[in-house]
Write a protein that binds this DNA or RNA. Structure first.
Length: 422
RNA sequence: GGAGAGAUGGCAGAGCUGGUUGAAUGCACCGGUCUUGAAAACCGGCAUAGCGCAAGCUAUCUAGGGUUCGAAUCCCUAUCUCUCCGCCA
């Protein structure tokens, strides 16, 4: 959610920043509503003051034996006027809140300006691309041939965009989850949590998935509960409506969860394999910190995500998303993209974002610098560490041998229990 | 799923026969007196947000509706918590 005070005090600056994200008219609309709102508040509050004053005098007048009936009648009329104006105020309030809640975050000043993904900026490439003397096979082909993946049966039981892992495939997925969690908890300093997969509407609003993107989420039949699209949602909202002490920060959590996405609007894209599913596994990292620390924290978060790819010896690159491609809640986002031989390009495997105070304002997450200080909003960050299914796919594709077998990365062998799948 | 009880300030906990109750009291916290220092004792302060140039006003006792001149207090709904029964991994 946006800081309306900032919009009031620096409208031109906000206007310019929003323009880099392709949003126009926002500031003007907010200011118009804000002025209307304040005019009504002045009006309705003076009426309420009058009513309170008169109501307070009624018991006194009664005691004096005076007839209060005419005063009550008069106040009844005032009361009706108040409720009418309160309704108008509520309409304007709702409209303003809707606008502030459905408009994307301001970009960081360090986010490159650009209109879409074509203007994202590559920061670095890490690792050697595998040299193959044969045509690389796609991961779904490798997986099905080796009996690790069964998309046909998955479709039979659940429809399209689901995966069924079998045998060593299920073991590999599980090994990856454990490997990632262990790395983050023992080496990168995260505390593991295992949150619920179903959350309430207000929780989804706290991190920015709602109200704007309701069609992207799976909604339960009670109409108020949703399957989580990422662990970021429950984990960040652990601290909803709380005031943390400075000593508690930074908070660092990692969590494995299944993630659920309706993938509305992506029909026809990535229809094969593990890349785009309604249900997938992900290990997530969430960091909550003081505002002046958040960009250092973002670098730490990125490094932690990279540590997994490095250990798995998978080639990847890091890009900074430009203003036009940065997600709704984020001020700055780095994407990690892993090399996918059958695609002949890099594919997103992690997204590490600093949301600054955008989610904190929605979820009311604050901290105090010391015991007598005024609470301030924290900054929240989240990043995948990593998308497990895509990591599975990357391992199959990058570690495939000429005979169709898969050589397991060294770091994963203790978790997987073998160094080869054939 | 059935029956009942509850949700009040950072915490604990009054009020809940509707009217100086934004809310007693205790604890915590902040400032001070005393003390070599600390503790204790004592004195004072101590919610949040909105609106207003300001004085100040308005709102908030889980949330949303309703009754009333007036609601923490009465009524309805939702959410959560607890107890008992049923069911269950």
């Amino acid at each position: 959610m946006h800081d309306i005070k900032l919009i009031r005090t620096e409208p031109d600056k906000v206007k310019a920043m929003m323009a880099t994200r392709g949003v126009t008219g926002f500031v003007e609309e907010v200011l118009t509503l804000d002025e209307k709102r304040r005019a009504i508040i002045v009006d309705v509050e003076s009426l309420k003051a009058k009513r309170n004053e008169v109501s307070k005098s009624i018991p006194q007048l009664k005691k004096e034996g005076k007839d209060v009936a005419p005063i009550m009648a008069e106040m009844k009329v005032v009361g009706e006027e108040i409720s009418e104006k309160d309704n108008t105020l509520k309409t304007i309030d709702d409209e303003l809140k809707q606008l502030l809640m459905t408009t994307q975050n301001l970009p960081s000043e360090t986010t490159p300006v650009g209109k879409d993904e074509s203007e994202n900026v590559e920061i670095k490439k890490v690792g050697e691309l595998p040299k193959m003397s044969f045509e690389p096979r796609a991961h779904w082909e490798l997986g099905e041939n080796l009996g690790l993946l069964d998309f046909e049966t998955a479709a039979k039981i659940s429809g399209s965009r689901f995966a069924l892992y079998k045998g060593k495939g299920a073991r590999l997925e599980r090994a990856l989850i454990n490997f990632m969690l262990d790395t983050h908890t023992t080496e990168n300093g995260y505390t593991e949590v295992m949150p619920p997969y179903i959350v309430k509407r207000h929780t989804m609003e706290g991190t920015g998935q709602l109200p704007k993107f309701e069609e992207d989420a799976f909604k339960l039949s009670d109409g108020d509960s949703f399957l989580i699209p990422t662990a970021e949602v429950p984990v960040t909202n652990m601290y909803r409506e709380s005031t943390l002490s400075a000593e508690e920060l930074p908070i660092a959590h990692t969590a494995y969860t299944a993630c659920f996405r309706s993938e509305a609007g992506s029909a026809g894209r990535d229809t094969r394999g593990l890349i785009r599913l309604h249900q997938f596994n992900k290990v997530e990292m969430v960091r909550i910190c003081q505002p002046n620390e958040s960009y250092n924290e973002l670098e730490k978060l990125l490094g932690d995500a990279e540590s997994i790819l490095k250990k798995l010896e998978l080639p990847y690159r890091v890009i900074t998303l430009c203003t036009g491609d940065t997600g709704f809640s984020a001020a700055k986002t780095y994407d990690l993209e892993v090399w996918m031989p059958s695609y002949g390009r890099y594919v997103e495997i992690s997204s590490c974002s600093n949301c600054e105070a955008f989610q904190a304002r929605r979820a009311e997450i604050k901290f105090k610098r010391d015991t007598s200080a005024k609470p301030e909003y924290v900054h929240t960050l989240n990043g995948s560490g990593l998308a497990v299914g895509r990591t599975f796919a990357a391992i199959l594709e990058n570690c495939q041998q000429a005979d169709g077998s898969i050589k397991i990365p060294k770091a994963l062998v203790p978790y997987f229990g073998a160094d080869l799948i054939d």
